[in-house]
Amino acid sequence: MESITKNRQPAEKLRAMVSRAYGPHQLPADSGQWFSELSHGLFNAVYRIRLRSGKQVVLKVAPAPEVEVMTYERGTMATELTALQLIAEHTKVPVPAVHFADRTHELCDADYFFMSYVEADNLNAVRNKLTQAQIDAYDLALGSITRELNSLHGELFGPLTGPGETTWRATFLRMIEELLGDGERRDVDLGCAYDRIRAILSAHADSLDEVTEPHFVAWDLWPGNCMVRDGEIVAIVDHERAFYGDPLMEFGFAGHELSAFGDPAVFLSGYGHTSLRPGERVRRRLYNLHLLIVQIIETEYRQHQDTGQYDWAREHLRTAVHLFDEPIR
């Protein structure tokens, strides 16, 4: 999908970045197709580059500084680099290896980094070609991977790079208030009143106090960020939205309270958390509000020409809001 946040670079700039990262001896030949843009990402510009040695690597470039992004998207490349380091050093979850990162803005107007290229398929791109048994196997594995990531602990709630807060209630309420502020600043129509969302948060904020330990939360861990080969998930990519918080915010749990996100049963089995207590269900309903509002508001900031995502999320936000009128059974 097209987005104004994608900070595309000309070939000569890419060559300079390659030289800084790998040395002049790895500069690709001037002729030939030595780079191509990878289109699965929705936020950063991402390139596959073939070095002179023939080795393929991936370059990821953050949005240009003059492009306004949502509040939680500021500094996301630093978050991703921190997340990749934590995952690589403290888990067995497969992630690309970071080769070089440059935040000086000397060659490029934004942060960028190089990492290993994973020869595999994007799970979301091939999902409609799979049998149900294959899909279930991947969902089971994704549940297990998510649980392992959530086993990482932080000292405070909030961004991986800080600053943090001592309570999850304060962190989540700040996150969603920043989000609502982003929407109000651009006059984004959510399909329901902003004050209605705030009233729901106020009425159910006590449920957030059940979360007392900060866990690593990938948050954006959906099939579109899974690379698969020969029936296995061989890499998890795009970690720029990770934070320390409540594991129930992971995408795999979303369908438990809103069927539009799919049946979570196999994921839950892989995770080892097959049922949610009443307080957990309330929190998941709050997290679905957050997720859907993100999906609505980002279409304005990224200036999507296709209204499909906006329309879908707006419709289901109304459903998610109405759920708070129903008791938890």
Rank of each mutant, 00 (worst) to 15 (best):
S3A: 15
N7P: 01
N7Q: 02
V18T: 09
V18C: 12
P24Q: 09
A29I: 03
S31K: 11
Q33H: 11
E37A: 14
E37D: 10
H40P: 00
L51D: 14
V57K: 05
P65D: 15
P65E: 13
E66F: 00
Y72P: 02
M77G: 04
T79M: 07
T79E: 09
I87W: 11
A88C: 04
A88T: 12
A101K: 12
R103C: 06
R103F: 15
F114L: 01
E119A: 12
A120P: 09
D121W: 04
V126N: 01
A137D: 15
D139C: 06
R147Y: 07
E148F: 08
L149S: 00
N150C: 12
S151P: 07
L156K: 14
F157I: 07
F157T: 02
F157D: 00
L160W: 05
T161R: 14
G162P: 12
E165D: 07
T167L: 03
I176K: 07
E178R: 14
L180R: 02
G183F: 15
R186C: 07
D189H: 11
D195W: 02
L208G: 02
L208E: 07
E210V: 08
T212I: 05
E213H: 11
H215L: 03
F216L: 05
M227I: 08
R229A: 14
I233T: 10
I236D: 12
H239L: 15
L248H: 09
M249G: 13
F251C: 09
G255L: 13
F261R: 04
P264L: 08
Y271S: 04
G272P: 01
T274N: 10
L276G: 06
R277C: 11
V282L: 12
L286P: 09
L289M: 10
T299I: 10
Q305V: 05
Y310T: 01
D311P: 00
W312G: 03
A313Y: 06
H316V: 12
H316P: 10
T319K: 09
A320N: 03
V321S: 04
E326W: 08
E326Y: 08
I328G: 14
